[in-house]
Design a protein around this nucleic acid. Structure first.
Length: 242
RNA sequence: GUUUUCGUGUGCUAGG
């Protein structure tokens, strides 16, 4: 079964949805949630949420129980298609069926709230996570930091970063890149360059994303020489420009 | 410290 699941996943990742379906129909084992999840996701990322929901119904009819992963996929897709308020229905549904949302589920939701401009709602969910037994991670915080920075709520962003440290949740490369990009977009390039130093101190390697964010910020201010200088520094950190 | 198979966060460019 794992063998077949691996191949179904391969077809799905390659976008060969029809081949994936054929393989599922022909496989000599009863497909399980690992079989269906990649198919559901492949349909969702192509915007075919109704088809994904049809597969979901099909798996239920075959007596295959959806997992927290299944619901998280559908939750994310519903958020993108119809907004998080619509998606909350799914959150309730999964809880009603005894499927407890996990940290990824909440990360999906928090991200959607941030994208829809409801950072404060996202913060409320974030703060509720410890009492729900979920360990927050860098992915939980990054979208919230992005939103706060985007609204220039710098102070709150710093407080949230401090909170991460208290929770022993280390910011990673993506977290730093997110902050750096936000600062650059607001014209605070010098501040962003300082964050690059913090980044290295935390053992994160500034990469191509870091560089292109800052380069963009610098060139928007006409500071091309500084950009070249920064490139030298990043090279010394082992970053190869593309 | 457990991913034999599934889900979440970051840039530039191009297109809209």
């Amino acid at each position: 079964l794992v063998t077949y699941n691996t191949m179904v996943n391969g077809y799905c990742r390659a976008g060969r949805i029809d081949d994936a379906r054929r393989l599922i129909d022909d496989m000599p084992f009863a497909p399980d949630t690992f079989t269906f999840n990649p198919l559901i996701r492949a349909l969702c990322v192509r915007g075919r949420v109704p088809d994904a929901l049809a597969v979901f119904d099909d798996m239920l009819q075959r007596g295959c129980s959806p997992s927290v992963v299944t619901y998280s996929i559908l939750l994310g897709a519903t958020c993108k298609a119809s907004g998080y308020r619509q998606a909350m229905v799914l959150l309730d549904e999964m809880r009603a069926k005894g499927c407890e949302p996990d940290i990824v589920t909440y990360n999906v939701l928090i991200n959607a709230m941030c994208n829809e401009g409801d950072v404060d709602e996202a913060l409320t969910v974030l703060r509720s996570l410890p009492s729900r037994g979920c360990k927050t991670d860098a992915v939980t915080y990054t979208p919230v930091l992005k939103s706060l920075c985007g609204s220039e709520r710098w102070k709150e962003a710093e407080e949230l970063l401090a909170e991460m440290a208290i929770n022993k949740c280390a910011p990673d490369e993506v977290t730093f890149n997110t902050i750096i990009t936000s600062l650059c977009r607001k014209g605070l390039v010098d501040r962003a360059v300082k964050v690059v130093d913090d980044m290295s101190e935390h053992g994160c390697i500034p990469g191509i994303v870091t560089y292109s964010s800052i380069l963009d910020g610098l060139s928007n201010e006409g500071r091309v020489d500084d950009a070249v200088e920064l490139l030298r520094r990043l090279r010394s950190y082992g970053c190869k420009p593309d």
